[in-house]
Simulated assay, not measured.
Amino acid sequence: MNCLKTTYFFDFENEIIQKLIASHKENTTSDKEKAIALYNNVRDNWKYDPYSISFSKENYKASTIAQKETGNCVEKSILLIACLRAVGIPARLHLGKVKNHIAVERLTEKFGSNELTPHGMVNVFLNNQWLKMSPAFNVSLCKKFNVEPLEFDGENSSFLQQYNNEGSLFMEYTADYGFFEDVPLDFMKKNVKEHYPHIFDTDNNETEFKL
Rank of each mutant, 00 (worst) to 15 (best):
H119E: 05
K110S: 08
E15M: 02
A86F: 06
C3F: 06
S56K: 15
K190W: 04
P50W: 12
G96W: 09
E166L: 01
C3K: 05
N191R: 14
A175T: 13
N156T: 11
D31Y: 05
M188Q: 03
E26Q: 02
K61N: 07
I16P: 06
H119C: 06
L4T: 15
E115L: 10
S140Y: 06
K61C: 11
N156I: 00
W46A: 06
K190D: 10
E69A: 05
I81Q: 03
C83N: 06
E15K: 00
F179L: 00
T29F: 05
F200L: 14
N138F: 01
G112Y: 06
K189V: 15
V104E: 10
T174D: 09
E148V: 09
K61I: 01
Y173E: 03
F111C: 10
D44G: 02
T207F: 02
D182V: 11
D49H: 08
D201P: 13
T207Y: 09
P50L: 11
F111Y: 15
H101K: 09
E58A: 15
E115G: 12
M171E: 03
K132I: 00
V147M: 04
E75Q: 15
S63T: 04
K68Y: 13
K34S: 08
S54W: 13
V192R: 15
M171G: 00
I36W: 03
Q129N: 03
N127V: 00
E172C: 07
T64C: 12
S134R: 04
N138H: 11
I81M: 05
E206D: 14
F209I: 10
F170K: 07
N114C: 10
F145P: 00
V74C: 14
S140I: 05
Q161E: 06
S134G: 01
G96V: 14
Q18Y: 03
V139K: 02
Q67E: 15
H24A: 10
M133Y: 08
S168R: 10
K19D: 12
N146I: 05
A66N: 13
T174A: 11
G154F: 05
A91I: 02
Y48P: 01
E105N: 14
T7C: 06
N27D: 15
D182S: 13
H94W: 14
K110P: 04
Y177H: 15
G112S: 10
D153C: 01
S168C: 02
P197S: 14
G96E: 10
N114E: 04
Y39W: 13
K32T: 08
H119V: 02
E148T: 13
F209Q: 03
L20V: 01
D44N: 11
P197Y: 12
P149G: 00
E166H: 05
Q162A: 11
N40T: 04
S30M: 01
P135Q: 08
N165R: 11
T202W: 12
H94T: 13
A91M: 04
A82V: 04
N204M: 10
F179S: 15
V192W: 07
M1V: 13
K19F: 10
A82Q: 03
V192L: 15
K110I: 12
F159I: 05
F152E: 02
G88T: 09
T108C: 12
E26K: 07
N123P: 00
A82S: 14
Y39H: 07
V122L: 07
T7Q: 11
N156K: 11
F10T: 04
N164S: 10
V74L: 12
C142I: 05
D31N: 14
F10I: 07
R106H: 14
E115I: 08
F12W: 08
Y177E: 09
